[in-house]
Structures are given as C-alpha cells and as structure tokens.
Design a protein around this nucleic acid. Structure first.
Length: 222
DNA sequence: GTCCAGACGT
DNA sequence: ACGTCCGGAC
C-alpha cells in the first residue's frame, strides 16, 4: 500500500467528500456518457443524455436503431457530435451483435478480454474503455486521465514520460483492489484537477498544495 | 476569448 | 508529434 496515494486520497476526500459519480444511472446510460464526455465538460453532456432519455432511447437496441445522422443531432450539445455519433454507433453495434444488447452478459465476461474488445471499437480508447468497465460494469479497473497524469507528475510522484498503462499499474499495484475506492479516487482527481491542476496551475487553496516539492518540478509544456 | 471526464488519422 | 473534431459554460 502506497503511503502517498493513501494520503492523497484522504486529503481529497476530506476536502471534497464523495463525488457520487454515476449513482443510480443505468449501466447503459453510463456507457453512453463515457463516450459523449470525451474531451468535453460534463455539463455539455447532460443535455445530450436528456435528449436521449426524453425519447426513450437509453437502451442498446433502441439507440442502435437510430440512424447515425439523427443520432448526431440528438447528441449535438455534447460537441464533436458527428464523430461521437459514429463512435457511439460503433460501440452499440458491438454490444448488440456480440451480446445481443445484454449488458449483464457483457460485463460477465473476463475483464481483460472485455477491455480488449472495447478497445477494438473505433472511438473507444483506454480512458473510455476503463470508464465503462469501472463506472458501468463495477469492475476493478483504475481510470487514468490527463488530470491524473498531471497531478502525479507535478508533485514528483511519477515520471512525466509514463504512459497510460504504466500509470494505471502504479495505482492498481499500490491500492487495495476495491471498486468503490477506484470509483471515488478517479472522481476526486478529476475534481482537484479541474479546480487546481489546470494547464497553468492554481495551487491556492489546493488540498495537495503542501505536498509540492520545494524545488518545484520542471515540466514540458502542456 | 479560453477550456473541456480523448481518440484517431496523418 | 501534430491537426482535427465541436458546442457550450465561464
């Protein structure tokens, strides 16, 4: 168990409390949200999800049957709407054709196998795949994003050059394998990243401020 | 005007 | 290693 990660988690949780990421939403809705939120603030995704809910389209078969052009208009508020409509449709095709639209059946398969299968969908990269596995499937996979990388690199806890898998291993090998912990920790890192660990850091009032090395860390431009 | 829970093509 | 995709919140 990593003392640093423990301390970081405690500080963030004490400062922000539970983030309630995707509670009470259906696994399918979470999966859709995971695609729509790519490089987009969640605020802009909610409208898109509402559009789908109003039309009773939050089910695999129903949404897959919507023509891509029509789908793109429904999800327009989420941005990148033409690309995301294709990506979402690609994912839906896999779910419908491989699992007959049954998410319970999908999440029952071996995690590693399912992850590779998700990554095989054009438009589903590592963060989206892992978000689906953790937040829709309740599977013990730690989600990495740019904030995670930035927060850990700036404090000198990892090398800047570490890749997605390396950073994921860092978390999974230094934390208890606990879905609730993974869920909360990633959400808290997004929160502190959004609030403080921006491209240009805003360390005033950050719960992690006094963990910064005195010398400072020299980072490449980002 | 800046920035955002990324991923893909070149 | 870049350019592109995009509306909306701030």
């Amino acid at each position: 168990m990593s003392q640093i990660l423990q301390d970081v988690y405690r500080r963030l949780f004490d400062a922000y409390g539970p983030q309630h990421w995707w509670p009470g939403e259906s696994p399918f809705e979470v999966m859709v949200g995971a695609v729509l939120v790519q490089n987009t603030s969640w605020k802009n995704v909610e409208k898109a999800i509402d559009n789908l809910r109003e039309r009773d389209l939050l089910a695999p078969r129903a949404l897959f049957d919507v023509p891509v052009e029509e789908l793109s208009e429904l999800i327009r508020p989420a941005g990148y709407y033409r690309m995301k409509a294709k990506r979402l449709h690609n994912l839906l095709r896999m779910v419908v054709e491989t699992y007959d639209g049954d998410l319970d059946a999908m999440f029952a398969v071996n995690v590693h196998t399912l992850r590779e299968e998700l990554l095989g969908v054009n438009g589903v990269g590592p963060e989206t795949a892992d978000s689906i596995l953790l937040y829709a499937g309740n599977l013990p996979v730690f989600v990495i994003d740019t904030y995670t990388h930035r927060v850990l690199a700036r404090h000198g806890w990892i090398e800047y050059e570490i890749d997605y898998h390396g950073l994921q291993e860092h978390f999974e090998s230094n934390l208890e394998q606990d879905v609730a912990l993974y869920n909360e920790f990633h959400a808290l890192l997004v929160r502190v990243g959004h609030k403080h660990c921006r491209k240009t850091p805003k360390c005033e009032g950050c719960p992690l401020a006094d963990l910064l090395p005195e010398s400072g860390i020299v980072m490449p431009e980002w």
